[in-house]
Design a protein around this nucleic acid. Structure first.
Lengths: 162, 162
DNA sequence: CCTCACCTTCACGTGAACGTCAAGGTTGTG
DNA sequence: CACAACCTTGACGTTCACGTGAAGGTGAGG
């Protein structure tokens, strides 16, 4: 049994670790996106590792997926609902109820996946278009290099994405 | 020669067609993201098809890719720069200059692709995580359906926020 | 105990991306 | 030509996601 670091961090350290500002962290708390694991005697916010993970997750959703904090709140609520369901799952042995809980959870996940996939798909089509343009350019360049062969110092074209 | 629809639309029709509000369209103009193809005698904004396309593109960048209007401005400027380069390309026959122009354009496109791909990648990893959860649930469901409750609770430590 | 760096809770400020009147001009249809 | 339905340019309001003090409390070191 590991004591699993009971090392609690204060908001400034959390900010440094997550790349968020203290203001943002407090703001997220204000919005109900998280609660610090504990408070010190003098009411300092104290965070544990799971809080860090949660904040990093929030940051990822915000920056990478471009979700609004409201949407992130929804996702986290869904997550919490899943957690509660798992709890209930463990506490029942009735197959019908278990099946109902599992199906419910699956529907939730499916919804998330669909949402994410929609964004990803459209992003992918934008990438495709850009790559088509790139290929077009590359074609012209190749044409230039192989056909006329003038007396020019051939500079190396840095190929980044082969 | 086709007259190719010289049908110009007024801002309200454009709004209906693009799903944007008139205010948003004027705002984008204010930010320099587009200019209406023409103005009527009484100074009404008049838009052509390419304006529609541009607005739909902007909307896609905003909604689907989640870019800020400032970033969109950058992308569109890049696009314009590409266009200018193509023009210059057509007007020169000097191989060295042609190569320089093409390489420049390619660098721009590469930058865009990298930017888009970064977003897409991280979105993809989120989707992957969600699908893993889904598979996990599906496994439990199958277990419920096919096995007489084998008492096997052989799961790992469960990562909480992937 | 003192100090200084960090923390607390208000509370107002800010930039982005529009919404929403207000006051007037323009179009096209009866 | 009357008039409703659209348009114009301001200009101020709003929501989101924080930034930035202000005024005071906390906590570990010297």
């Amino acid at each position: 049994m590991t004591h699993t670091d009971v090392r609690l961090l204060r908001i400034n350290e959390v900010a440094a670790e997550t790349g968020l500002t203290t203001r943002a962290i407090r703001y997220y708390e204000e919005l109900g996106l998280l609660e610090p694991a504990a408070r010190s005697e003098g009411d300092y916010r104290l965070y544990d590792q799971s809080d860090l993970d949660r904040l990093l997750f929030i940051r990822s959703l915000r920056d990478d997926a471009g979700f609004s904090l409201a949407q992130i709140g929804q996702l986290l609520e869904d997550e919490a609902a899943r957690e509660r369901n798992r709890e209930r799952l463990r506490s029942t042995t009735d197959p019908d109820e278990r099946r109902a809980l599992l199906l419910d959870a699956q529907r939730r996940v499916d919804r998330q996946i669909e949402f994410l996939r929609a964004k990803a798909d459209r992003l992918a089509s934008m990438i495709e278009a850009a790559e088509a343009r790139r290929a077009h350019l590359a074609g012209h360049l190749a044409e230039l290099d192989h056909v006329p062969a003038p007396y020019s110092e051939r500079q190396k074209k840095q190929a980044k994405t082969p």
